[in-house]
Design a protein around this nucleic acid. Structure first.
Lengths: 337, 337
DNA sequence: ATTGCGATTGCACACACGTGCAAGCGGATG
DNA sequence: CATCCGCTTGCACGTGTGTGCAATCGCAAT
């Protein structure tokens, strides 16, 4: 029946009695169109339900307006919060977010970037995994901007946004000691993600400076279940820790739950706990977790600002790197000094 | 310097010593190309880093491969889980997800759909809000498929996926009564979302059949904080409820936390609680929440399958509606009968 | 009346791709 | 050898848009 396709600028032009160029100019800010023609075009467009075809526009302008978000573990609280902020700010900047999930194999980050190239994305923001150097080069050579968030990589070209993980580890160590803790432990995943390893090393180093050893335990992913397992391992040791810094809030939640419900320990009286990310659950009264807040809003702002910044090749050779500090959110999982 | 744009099929053709058509056919499944030309084309493409321009391809085929996901409150556990499943399945079906966040005003759902039209999305999946009928018609007229998930709407054309919310309310009411509860309550948000209202009405109706009244309290959004407020209101009543069905797991978590930590109540001994969604936190031992699981995987499967199904106009007039049942996940927040 | 000038408009081309059509080519059959 | 047939391949056109260039138009000044 009405297998009519999308309405094109040509049809609008005919209905308005003007040339197709006039239609195009009407929808191009800053183009030269008289008020009268503009009015007639807009009227016809409204009547016909015309919308500029961004595929064709992107083809012409060599600028699709698409920004790819490459993510795994979207269902994780921290990831989804960051995703939320990024999409909102991208939209405010007139871009549109294309979402690529890399929950499968690890090489899929490369395939994701290829997808980004196929759709001529103006930029790609990588939240998970690390692309192969050859793919990165391919993207840059094609004029595609790249942003790496909390990914460690020394390739020049992409914008790299990182936190002061190492220093955070140090700050929490002194907080533990000030609270009277003597047996410190660090709970990590066994993924070996660089940012998590920096937290670990910062914590261990600071503790050493304070004359304390740290028992490090690593297991599984960065989720709740892994936290429970880590609690099993740590809290059955001969010398039971009285303070645990967890690489992630989810780990901390699992560890706290196990400590309380399986080992009958009281937090923070018998066990102090700290996490990282400041996910929403950290503020729930069941956890009331002292943790470091990822500056999600700032991360998104910086990334989007940089995407909008000039395309001048002059700066394309310098090292783009941003270091943000994670704010310590003081709650009740560490007893007062 | 190397302000070279993306490499086009033309350049590949020249390097391979064939016509541009040959290149195009090489990347079009089912086209007629000899093995030899195909090899040379692929070789040249690899060397130059060529990738088919999906914008141009979409322009030709009238099929962009883009599917729009229109969502608000992405950072919510249930939403992000559904989002995860949808993106994975869309990718497996050869589509790519475009993400539109509608966290702002309510009319923004319409603007989101306009964005979908501009990018000539093959389909849009709406997880939040409800578009205006005129926009819906515009989408359908342009051949764009529409999927509404847990949105109530009687417009023909879109695929509507819903749950048996009303019956779920009934099932949990009998479970409460069987557990010996006598004073029932329902905790809802004041948003008035149809699916939430169905849960409420189903619960109230079933309770009435069992000869029991239900005090209904509504407040704020569907989040944790609202649950705490609702607990304040309910647990200070003269006749304190001994069973609360919450429209949402997040509400239930907030309510449980307040009941325990502010009112010193024991769950489930003094207060039985049930939720809806089966978010990950519901299984955490701090909550151990009995709840209904949204069949996230099935929802995504059905949606993506329908998108891939034939474009025949024969079925375009029939009512597309899917009703799924939410499975009751029995945990420890309701005492055993 | 002629000239000059700025604003507007239409033509035509470019963007990167898919595909129908006809030409070419090789081989097999009569 | 002529004919036919199937497989390839190049040409040319179409998809919807932005934009440089030249033409046109209106208006004021000479």
């Amino acid at each position: 029946m009405s297998s009519k396709l999308f309405v094109s600028a040509q049809e609008v032009a005919e209905k308005a009695g003007v040339s197709r160029s006039a239609v195009s100019r009407t929808f191009t800010p800053g183009a030269s169109v008289s008020a009268e023609t503009r009015r007639r075009v807009l009227e016809a467009a409204e009547a016909l339900g015309y919308h500029v075809n961004h595929l064709a526009r992107g083809l012409m302008r060599n600028e699709s307006g698409i920004v790819c978000l490459i993510v795994s573990d979207v269902a994780t609280p921290y990831r989804s919060a960051l995703l939320r902020e990024l999409t909102i700010q991208l939209q405010n900047a007139g871009k549109v977010a294309m979402f690529i999930n890399t929950d499968r194999s690890d090489g899929s980050v490369d395939r994701a970037l290829q997808q980004a190239i196929r759709y001529r994305a103006d930029a790609s923001i990588i939240l998970s995994g690390l692309p192969d150097k050859s793919i990165t080069q391919l993207c840059l050579r094609n004029g595609q901007r790249l942003v790496l968030i909390n990914r460690d990589d020394d390739q020049p070209g992409p914008l790299k946004i990182n936190l002061d993980d190492f220093e955070s580890g140090g700050r929490i160590a002194t907080a533990f000691v000030r609270a009277g803790c003597r047996v410190l432990a660090f709970a990590n995943s066994e993924a070996g993600t660089p940012s998590l390893m920096r937290r670990e090393r910062g914590f261990v180093a600071a503790a050493a400076k304070l004359g304390l050893d740290v028992t490090v335990e690593r297991h599984g992913s960065t989720g709740y279940e892994a936290g429970k397992v880590l609690a099993q391992r740590m809290l059955t040791r001969a010398e039971r820790p009285d303070a645990v810094f967890c690489a992630t809030d989810l780990l901390a939640c699992g560890l706290m739950d196990a400590a309380r419900h399986q080992f009958g320990l009281s937090v923070p009286r018998q066990l102090c706990v700290a996490g990282f990310d400041d996910i929403e659950q950290a503020s729930w009264s069941s956890f009331d977790l002292t943790t470091f807040a990822q500056p999600v809003m700032t991360i998104a702002t910086r990334a989007v600002e940089w995407l909008g910044s000039g395309r001048d090749d002059a700066t394309s050779e310098v090292e783009h790197s941003v270091r943000l500090t994670a704010e310590l959110i003081w709650r009740g999982s560490i007893r007062a000094g």
